[in-house]
Structure formats: structure tokens, C-alpha cells
Design a protein around this nucleic acid. Structure first.
Length: 854
DNA sequence: GAGCACTGC
């Protein structure tokens, strides 16, 4: 286990409600267990008879050990704690239902103990009835951190070390052994395992947790499981969900029985906008108040036309509906505009709580970086809240360097009130126990996918009732709390019940590749079996992309390239970049860039030092005009700093996240192992042996082009500036966080990019400036122009004209490169340095001669 | 001329 994980587990355990003490006698019995319990995998019995005898012995040992542990004083304390959980009351009913039904749905609220107790009940029962050796329970979690913390919690409840009968496995990290009978893993790990074991042989019970969140992996998994169940009649499937949509899953599995467990959290009172305004006497001003005197009735704004909830509220007769409220409140409700958050109202609500309510931390849910930053400024300037000796105000955002700071979890000194300004990272990923007051703005940024324009969007929208409920619950973890909702009750009542499932909100290319890899049949037919099937146009777009990059053939079958891509846990474009990078002697940079693009941006976004952070990123990019090169150089500089023991200072000075960089390094190793497994590289020879052109930036950019195609932008010079155009959506802008933002002129005529997102405009998040030679040699296939002059790419969207002789030369070279690549993909063991040296050198030569702007 | 929800193999 890495020291980072150790620290995380320690923190998690420190935060869990009970302090655990394992006394000496328990420890001794575990040590005895280590000596007496044979390692199943190592000491394999030679015949079936031996095997049976061995298992019987092991069954008895497991039971005796479990019983002896139960008898210790610390275990009794633990047991009485467990018996207080609501889940304990359904233990017998649950075990009977598991025995009687192949599929069972369990619904329960936060704090009922379903995640920690139900898998444990099965384990104890199986061991008790001498089935311990045979049973193999898997419980999936959507997030890494919960897989670790739940496994750690159960191991300590059982008085044993993590990795004995209870273990976990997440990407790049596992703590399990041959004795492990209950394994917590992320859903992604189980999906990978299905490639090797399509029938989940040996698994006796599978519990899929947090299924109500409707993540893509979970939705994908349950389609597979529904088809698998008839082939595995002995497999038991338990779906664990929040109460809110348990029936949906029951119906999907042929009306599987549902067991409900009540929650165990403190009551949280709700205050809606009308009462917030009444209490705080805050006066909401409409845009018109400044220049239209007292004209009260709002007029519909064009901006509200896509927001049915706000529109609905505009038709409410305020005076009739809120006749018991004060005149000033009714005026505020008239002026309220659901399309934008009134930060003054948030500030006033915080101030009201601080002046009138008892002690307790405040958690404010906002939509993003900008709101957090602006509210922080407002609070600093507030006469009352600005007093830093009484109020500790902390921003909490996934990209802020403060995200892992202890003070977010720690209880502040008495007389200091903690106020956390967070995104929905605090809804399920990060839990702050001492929160008593929640302020909910009612919105979150949500991805959606516009299949018509092949465009990913990230726009603020109203949350679902389920999310609103989850946010409210964050106030009731240690004592009764209050949730202030900054939207009217009628808006809440009109919110959608659940958020759209992820499978309906995301591009599907990686999912489609996985479906092919698991041999689940025709993609469209398979996906039509989903709980909520995606738009056929989204599926068509994904399949077309996979064909364009050469992963699928016209018959929708995997090509050799497609087969290799399946083994890499990466988006197909990034996987292709990695494969081609390894073929063309750019393995080292390809590994780093793939890791960065697959995980998350290592650059953090500090709240007060934005300009410095921007400058740091730009200095890594140098004059490359590439965000990808900036990532690469930052990682390499971090490696150097780490070697000289200056990692911490380096990260701090350059606005980098040490945790993300470490994860990138681990992922690089995983990719290298996988490339070695499929024979593309020989790991023993080292990364350097495949990185002859690793420092050649033209070559690295060409590799990026090979991977990221068809994500291409044309740079068109417009006077002293450059305008950017894309085939699907036309004009686009460089995202302001890109090193290419604000640059007016570029040396080369094209960009490739990894992400294009619509927010307030259509932005290219990360880009690399590339030459036309890079595009011609490493981009998509090209054809002679219809006019007979020059060549076309992207169905004629891109046109290249050059003298006939140059075009012929390029065509020849491209042909040779394609042949070389094809051979390498079909026989991965092919030694490129020996076989293709001249062709590659020719390509490099050509790329070096293209630094002329035209 | 101006922006960066969150997970996961």
C-alpha cells in the first residue's frame, strides 16, 4: 500500500464514529490465524479428495476463528454498536431473502449501515454454516475511497487486519490475500475482471452498491448481470440503492423483492426561499429595479426559455400564493430570478445563521469555481463575517489546492465557526461530519451530450429531488440540523425526481469499445437493453468515431488496433496515441500524456494566485503552443524535483498537485505493463529503448495528432489575430486556461485537441499546434480532391494543396508509415528500430521542415 | 476577451 493511501485510510478511520480498540487477545488470534490458515493459492492440493478434505478443514478453522474473535471484550463492544444500526433489525429477513432469491434489492437511507453490515452478514452466515472456504463475496463501490474505507471499517469490526478475510481492490492498488472472502472493489475493476471471467466463476455473492447514482459503470454492469444470471443460477445478486428509486431496479430484474431499511440520521429542518427571505429580511432586486422604478411584475427573459422551472415560477401569482408573507418578501419573490444565483442572498443567509443560530459548521453548495471565489471575496469584505478570528471560511473545489487540507475535516477551535464553500464534491465524495447547517443554491454544473452536434456540454442546471435530499442530509450527521434552500418550495416540488443517468449524458465511444471487448453482441442491440437506453444517434456517433480511428471495421467488428485498444483502460483516442507513440519511438512522452489526459489535470487552480499559476503553466509549455507539452514538461520537472528531494516545494511553486502527479506515475507503469503484455514493448529493455524521439517535440506533436484525430481545429488568420474553426460546430474558442488562449498568431496552421466543451461558449480545453505535414502523415486517411488539385481530409473539410511532386512524396511516405504500423499492430513483436528505421527517419525529417507559417 | 461539476479501469 502506498503511504498516501495509508494516510487516507488513517484519516478515514479517525473520522469514523467509533474509536476502535483491538486488544491483545484479538491480535494474538489473528497471528494464530496467519499461521494456521493455509494459503489456498500457494498450497494447492493435488487431488479433488485432498481438495475437499482441505476445504472442510479450512471451513472449520474459519468458523472457530470467527467464534473466538466474537468472544473477546472488544468484539462485544463492537457487536453492541453494530446491533444499534437499523440494518441489524433486518438481518434475518435479509439472509432469508438472499437464500430464497437470486436477485434482491435493498433500499436504505444514509446511516442505516447497509454497506458495512449486509456484506458482513453474508460472510458471517457462510462461515457459520461451514461454507467459508467456498464463499466469495464481492461488493462494488463507485468510488476508490469508499472501497478502501468500507473494507477497513469491516476488517476492524471483525477484529482483523485489512487484507485477511476482508480486502479491497482498486486500480493500481489492492489489499487482499488468498484468505480474502469479502472483497470490496470499484465497479471499474469488476468490469475489467469480466473480460477474463465472463461468468464470474467462483463468485458466490455480488453486491452492487450506490446503484441509485446511475453511474455509467453501474448501468453497464447491470445489463451484463441480467444476461448472466440464467447462466449462473448459484450466483446471488444484491443491488443496494437509496430508497428513492429502488422499484426501478426491482422491475428491471423481473420484480425482485425489495427490503427497506430505515435511516439513522438526525432530523434536518427545511427552510425554503420564501422563509429565508422572511427571516433574513434580505431584499432581492431584479434587473429592472435600477431603472424602472416600482414596476414589479417581471417579464420573461430570453435566457429563461430553456429553464422550465424558472419559467413556471414566473407564472405564479405571488400575492395570492404568498399572501401570509410580508410585503417585502413578496416583492423579493417577484424580483427573484431563477437563472442566476444571488450571492448577496447567500451572504445574508450565512450572516443570519451566524448571528441567530447555535454553533455548528455551515456547508454552502455552489456550482463552481467562480461562485466560490466571488463569495469568498464578499465574505472577506463583510463587516461581521470578515472577522477571521471568529469565522474560518474554506473553499472546497476538486481543482483547488485546498481540497485535501485537514482543516476542512477538523473541528475548529471553540468560538470559531467553520464555513465551507463547496461544489457538489461535498455531496458524496467528501464528508464533513460537523456540518449542522446546509445552504443549498439548488443548482450544479451538469454534463450533457448533444448528439446532433457531437458536443459535450457543461452547464449549470437545477438539481434533482434526490440530490436536494442528499445535500440536506449533509447537515444531520452529528446532531439535528437545518437546510436553507435558496429557491422557492414550488421549484423544489417541480424538480425532476432523479438526475438523468450518466449513460444518457456522455459520449459513448469507450463504452462501445468495452461492449465489443466483452463480446456482448451488436452494440446497439446490447445498449437497447439498458435500464434507460441511450439515444441511437449517440450510439451511431460513437461507432462512427471508432471506425474513423480504425478500431472497428465496416462490419462493426474489432480490428487488430481495436483489440489492442480494448486492453488499455483509456479513451480510444488516447489509447491510440499511446500505441502509436510506442511504435514511433516516443513511448516516454506518450505514457505521460496518456496518464495526464486519462486521469485529471495536475495543474491546480488557486483562488488568489491565478495569474501566477497561469504563468507557471505557460513556462512549462515554452514556445510549443501546446497544453499537452506543458503537461509533459511539468511531469518531467516533477520527476527531477522528486529525485533531488524537493518535491513539495516544487509542486507548491508551480501550482501542481503532488497526488495527481503520483497517480500519473503509477498509471504510466500500468500502461507500460499492459503494452508489455500485448507485446508492443519489452518492459525489460526499459522505456528509454522506445523513446529515441522522446525529446523531439515535432515528433511528439505528430504522435498527438495520430491519437487525437479527428479532433482537429483550423487556425485562420484574421488580421492580427487567429480565429479557430471546427468541422462539427464551426467557430470555437481556446479555453482561457489553455496556454494557447490569448496567443494571437501561431506558427502552424492546425490544432489537435482532446476536449471540446460548451459552457458559456464552445471552448477547446487543451490543444496542440500542429503542421500540415503532421496531419498528412499521422492524421486520418486522405483522398485526392474532387477538383483534381491537392488532397482532402475529414470528408473535404480540410484541403491541402501543394505541387504534384510533393503530394506524391507524401502519399508514398504515408503509405509506408501505414504499412509499418499495420504490420506492427498485427504482429506486435515486430522490431521497429530494425525494420522501419528509414521510414521513420524520413517522417521525422519531413516534420522538421514544416515550421513555416503560411 | 475571459473560465475551470464529479467519478472510474
Amino acid at each position: 500500500m502506498s503511504t498516501e493511501t495509508e494516510r487516507r485510510v488513517e484519516n478515514l478511520l479517525a473520522r469514523s464514529k467509533e474509536t476502535l480498540t483491538i486488544n491483545d487477545s484479538t491480535t494474538t488470534s489473528i497471528q494464530m490465524a496467519r499461521q494456521s490458515v493455509p494459503n489456498v493459492a500457494v498450497s494447492k492440493p493435488e487431488s479433488t479428495e485432498d481438495d475437499n478434505a482441505f476445504k472442510e478443514k479450512f471451513n472449520i478453522e474459519l468458523r472457530d476463528l470467527q467464534n473466538s474473535r466474537k468472544a473477546t471484550p472488544s468484539a462485544r463492544v463492537m457487536q453492541s454498536f453494530r446491533e444499534k444500526l437499523p440494518a441489524f433489525k433486518v438481518k434475518d429477513e435479509f439472509l432469508k431473502a438472499v437464500a430464497d432469491n437470486q436477485v434482491l434489492v435493498v433500499s436504505g437511507e444514509t446511516g442505516c449501515g447497509k454497506t458495512t453490515q449486509l456484506p458482513q452478514f453474508i460472510l458471517e452466515e457462510e462461515i457459520e454454516r461451514l461454507q467459508g472456504a467456498k464463499c466469495n463475496i464481492i461488493c462494488t463501490q463507485p468510488r476508490r475511497i469508499s472501497a478502501i474505507s468500507v473494507a477497513a471499517r469491516i476488517a476492524s469490526e471483525r477484529g482483523e487486519n485489512l487484507g485477511e478475510t476482508v480486502g479491497y481492490q482498486i486500480r493500481l492498488e489492492a489489499k487482499r490475500s488468498a484468505q480474502t472472502r469479502l472483497l470490496f472493489c470499484t465497479t471499474g475493476v469488476l468490469l475489467r475482471r469480466l473480460v477474463q471471467e465472463p461468468d464470474l466463476g467462483g463468485v458466490s455473492h455480488l453486491l452492487v452498491d450506490e446503484i441509485h447514482e446511475r453511474g455509467m459503470n453501474e448501468d453497464f454492469l447491470i445489463i451484463i448481470l441480467r444476461d448472466l444470471l440464467p447462466r449462473r443460477p448459484d450466483l446471488r445478486l444484491i443491488l443496494m440503492s437509496a430508497t428513492i428509486n429502488a422499484e426501478l431496479f426491482s422491475t428491471y430484474f423481473g420484480n425482485a423483492p425489495i427490503i427497506h431499511i430505515p435511516g439513522l440520521t438526525y432530523p434536518v429542518a427545511e427552510v425554503f426561499l420564501e422563509d429565508v427571505v422572511e427571516k433574513t429580511r434580505y431584499r432581492i432586486k431584479s434587473e429592472f429595479d435600477n431603472f424602472q422604478g416600482n414596476s414589479r411584475r417581471r417579464r420573461r427573459q430570453p435566457s429563461t426559455k430553456n429553464d422550465p422551472l424558472t419559467e413556471m415560477f414566473e407564472d405564479v401569482d405571488i400575492d395570492a400564493q404568498y399572501k401570509n408573507y410580508s410585503m417585502s418578501t413578496r416583492q423579493s419573490l417577484e424580483a427573484w430570478d431563477g437563472t442566476q444565483l444571488d450571492l448577496g442572498l447567500v451572504e445574508a443567509t450565512i450572516e443570519y445563521i451566524c448571528r441567530h443560530e447555535k454553533d455548528g459548521a455551515i456547508l454552502v453548495f455552489l456550482t463552481g469555481w467562480d461562485e466560490i471565489s466571488k463569495l469568498l471575496d464578499k465574505i472577506k469584505g463583510n463587516n461581521f463575517l470578515g472577522n477571521s478570528s471568529r469565522f474560518l471560511v474554506l473553499p472546497l473545489h476538486g481543482s483547488m489546492p485546498t481540497v485535501n487540507q485537514r482543516e476542512i475535516f477538523d473541528r475548529p477551535p471553540s468560538n470559531v465557526r467553520k464555513i465551507v464553500l463547496a461544489t457538489n464534491i461535498a455531496e458524496s465524495s467528501i464528508t464533513i461530519d460537523d456540518v449542522v447547517y446546509v445552504i443549498d443554491c439548488g443548482k450544479a454544473k451538469e454534463t450533457s451530450y448533444d448528439a446532433l452536434n457531437k458536443l459535450a456540454c457543461l452547464l449549470p442546471s437545477w438539481i434533482s429531488k434526490a440530490s436536494a435530499h442528499q445535500r440536506r442530509g449533509r447537515a444531520g450527521r452529528v446532531q439535528p440540523g437545518v437546510c436553507y434552500r435558496l429557491y422557492p418550495k414550488v421549484i423544489h416540488d417541480a424538480m425532476p425526481q432523479y438526475q438523468l443517468p450518466e449513460i444518457l449524458r456522455t459520449p459513448l465511444q469507450e463504452l462501445c469499445l468495452n461492449i465489443k471487448s466483452l463480446q456482448l453482441g451488436a452494440v446497439a442491440t446490447f445498449l437497447a437493453k439498458a435500464l434507460q437506453p441511450p439515444d441511437p444517434l449517440s450510439v451511431k456517433n460513437a461507432l462512427e468515431l471508432l471506425k474513423t480511428i480504425g478500431a472497428l471495421d465496416e462490419m462493426e467488428e474489432l480490428t487488430p488496433l481495436g483489440c489492442h485498444l480494448c486492453t488499455l483502460p483509456l479513451d480510444p483516442n488516447i489509447g491510440k496515441m499511446l500505441l502509436i507513440g510506442s511504435v514511433f519511438q516516443c513511448l516516454d512522452p506518450a505514457l505521460t500524456i496518456a496518464a495526464a489526459l486519462a486521469h485529471r489535470d495536475p495543474f491546480v487552480l488557486p483562488i488568489n494566485r491565478k495569474e501566477e499559476a497561469d504563468a507557471a503553466k505557460r513556462s512549462f509549455a515554452g514556445d510549443s503552443c501546446s497544453d499537452h507539452i506543458a503537461l509533459l514538461k511539468a511531469f518531467e520537472a516533477w520527476k527531477d524535483a522528486k529525485r533531488s528531494g524537493k518535491e513539495r516545494a516544487f509542486c507548491w511553486e508551480n501550482f501542481l498537485s503532488p497526488m495527481t502527479l503520483q497517480m500519473m506515475e503509477d498509471m504510466r507503469n500500468q500502461f507500460l505493463d499492459l503494452l508489455s503484455d500485448i507485446g508492443f514493448v519489452n518492459k525489460a529493455r526499459g522505456v528509454k529503448a522506445y523513446s529515441q524521439y522522446g525529446d523531439d517535440l515535432e515528433m511528439v506533436c505528430a504522435i498527438l495528432c495520430a491519437g487525437l484525430y479527428p479532433n482537429v481545429i483550423q487556425c485562420k488568420r484574421r488580421g492580427k489575430r487567429t480565429a479557430f474553426y471546427n468541422k462539427e460546430v464551426g467557430k470555437v474558442d481556446m479555453h482561457p486556461s489553455s496556454v494557447n488562449a490569448g496567443v494571437h498568431l501561431f506558427p502552424l496552421p492546425y490544432m489537435v485537441y482532446s476536449e471540446k466543451v460548451k459552457t458559456t461558449g464552445i471552448y477547446i480545453r487543451d490543444s496542440t499546434n500542429i503542421s500540415d505535414y503532421a496531419l498528412l502523415l499521422f492524421g486520418g486517411s486522405f483522398m485526392p480532391s474532387k477538383t483534381g488539385e491537392g488532397i482532402d481530409m475529414l470528408g473535404g473539410y480540410l484541403h491541402f494543396s501543394a505541387p504534384k511532386s510533393v503530394i506524391q512524396l507524401i502519399q508514398r511516405l504515408r503509405g509506408e508509415l501505414d504499412k509499418l504500423l499495420q504490420r506492427k499492430i498485427e504482429e506486435p513483436g515486430l522490431d521497429i528500430p530494425a525494420e522501419g528505421k528509414a521510414v521513420v527517419a524520413a517522417a521525422v525529417e519531413l516534420l522538421h521542415n514544416q515550421n513555416v507559417y503560411h
